[in-house]
Design a protein around this nucleic acid. Structure first.
Lengths: 129, 129
DNA sequence: ATAATACCGACTAGTTAGGTCGGTATTAAT
DNA sequence: ATTAATACCGACCTAACTAGTCGGTATTAT
């Protein structure tokens, strides 16, 4: 029941990039301005690039930039991209012998749905202004 | 971003007890019926008793029973009692140098509030019927 | 006296989060 | 062509936490 540092750093990086509006920004800058460990940030941004959230350019004056418009990116997407564990309990989509007469699953499903609705409704742009 | 086994077991145990309607029920029974490791269940119930959710009776025909009416117990209460980590990110109530100009905190606070609202609204009785 | 129970504290193995480190590939400026 | 700045990659590491186990003690109905 905790959001990982990875996702926290990831969102901070995305917000930083969103405010750069299209120009490429180096990991060095993000790392320094956002106080994120450089080596770790590398891994995070690489993952976000593979997930289609960022574009990269190598070499001098290279860096990262958003791959989509920032009104189209949600926190939910970010979480999924970074592998944030979203499934609150295993039994929701797993096999459970007791599932049929299990009453606690109703609680987990409610919480799960509410959570997903919330994170999918928070866009990057809504955080910036 | 996961609900601990402890809380899952805890809720299952509470639901079991709620269906017994006032009579004491042994850990042995709960453990067997709900497929919860006995030794672990002991610790969990002990914690719930200290937290005021359960009452206990020692000796033969002893066991546990609910300490409150089941319409007054919420999943949120259970979580707090069992020490489920509810704070999604440390910076929400912690000290963070960047807090003033930090834009990601808006996201975390939204998610946090929504989560708390949800869990505090799920009562034990609503899960049973 | 016995058996069934709750109660308690110490211990442990496996997993995960949150990184670090060293090296390689690419590219703009000189 | 060389250099410096960057992204990219995989292997490794450590501390904390989860999900228990275990052995023993206290209490109580029969």
């Amino acid at each position: 029941m905790k959001i990982s540092k990875k996702s926290q750093y990831g969102l901070r990086a995305m917000i930083h990039l969103a405010q750069k509006d299209g120009s490429f920004c180096s990991l060095k800058e993000i790392s320094e301005k956002e106080l994120i460990p450089f080596n770790y940030l590398e891994k995070i941004c690489s993952q976000m690039e593979k997930g289609g959230l960022l574009k990269s350019r190598k070499g001098v004056y290279g860096g990262y930039t958003l791959a989509k418009k920032h009104e189209d990116i949600t926190v939910g997407e970010l979480f999924r991209c970074l592998g944030e564990r979203m499934l609150l309990v295993d039994c929701i989509d797993g096999i459970c012998a007791q599932k049929k007469h299990c009453k606690s699953i109703n609680a987990w499903e409610k919480i799960q749905k509410s959570l997903e609705k919330t994170i999918n409704s928070i866009t990057l742009i809504s955080l910036i202004k």
